[in-house]
């Protein structure tokens, strides 16, 4: 369970929080820090996953989520739509065509959001290193939080990846979606380089504003 360590200094790991958390200074900041820690603990214990079967790793998903390995015991549940998801699992190599859809799906997810990649193909191209249609380094295009290696990783390794992600959320480490917002130009330039500028919308907010909506 979450508890408060008195000597623990927290970096403000939270998006949009202007409050600097300094334990020693005021009681209000203290409460805020406790709340943040509590919320982070709940976030780590409840991860909704949209499993995007981009390659052969899709076959590792069913045993991870069903009777044999039962990821639900750690609060990891599959959902059907990216709107509800916290984590997207990209299981395998990504062709340009897939990458376009993955970017779209990722930007439809609501913050905080995380990415897990399975296998060696998203890391260095794997056996598709000389393909004219497959990307080699996924983390150039979207921020990968956890990369599980293996060809393919067994469900145990996938679960290990979940545990690592939970630890990172709990510790309030800087997550991929924050990096994406900060280095948006870097990511968008890379995407345009391989996808030839055919990425729409330019960014998620443009998409909402077109339809007269907004982000709550």
């Amino acid at each position: 369970m979450f508890g408060l360590d008195k000597g623990d200094k927290m970096e403000s790991g939270f998006y949009g929080s202007s409050l600097k958390c300094k334990f020693e200074e005021s009681g209000l900041a203290n409460t805020h820090a406790i709340m943040e820690k509590a919320v982070r603990w709940f976030e780590s214990r409840s991860i909704f996953v949209v499993a995007y079967g981009t390659g052969c790793g899709a076959i590792e998903m069913p045993p991870t989520f069903t009777s044999r390995y039962d990821a639900e015991r750690m609060g990891v549940v599959g959902v059907a739509t990216p709107r509800q998801a916290d984590l997207i699992i990209l299981s395998g190599y990504l062709a340009y065509k897939t990458l376009r859809r993955v970017i779209r799906t990722y930007e439809q997810m609501q913050k905080p959001r995380y990415i897990m990649s399975l296998g060696s193909c998203p890391i260095n191209g794997g056996m598709y290193w000389d393909s004219y249609n497959t990307i080699k380094k996924l983390d150039d295009y979207i921020p990968v939080d956890v990369a599980v290696t293996g060809c393919m990783p067994r469900p145990e390794a996938v679960i290990d990846g979940f545990v690592l992600l939970q630890e990172r959320i709990r510790n309030g480490e800087k997550a991929g979606w924050e990096k994406y917002d900060e280095n948006l130009k870097f990511y968008k330039d890379n995407q345009k380089r391989v996808l030839g500028g055919h990425v729409d919308p330019a960014y998620e907010t443009d998409w909402y504003n077109l339809n007269g909506g907004g982000i709550a």
Binding site: I123, N124, W129, D130, S131, Y132, N133, T134, H198
Partner: peptide, 26 residues
């Protein structure tokens, strides 16, 4: 999608050069 180069299975398309220019090694 949106392929604007030489068709990729023609032999005058240099796959390796294309790959190295588009997707350099880590």
């Amino acid at each position: 999608e949106y392929w604007d180069n030489i068709p990729p299975l023609r032999r005058d398309f240099d796959t390796l050069e294309y790959v190295n220019s588009m997707n350099p090694f880590r």
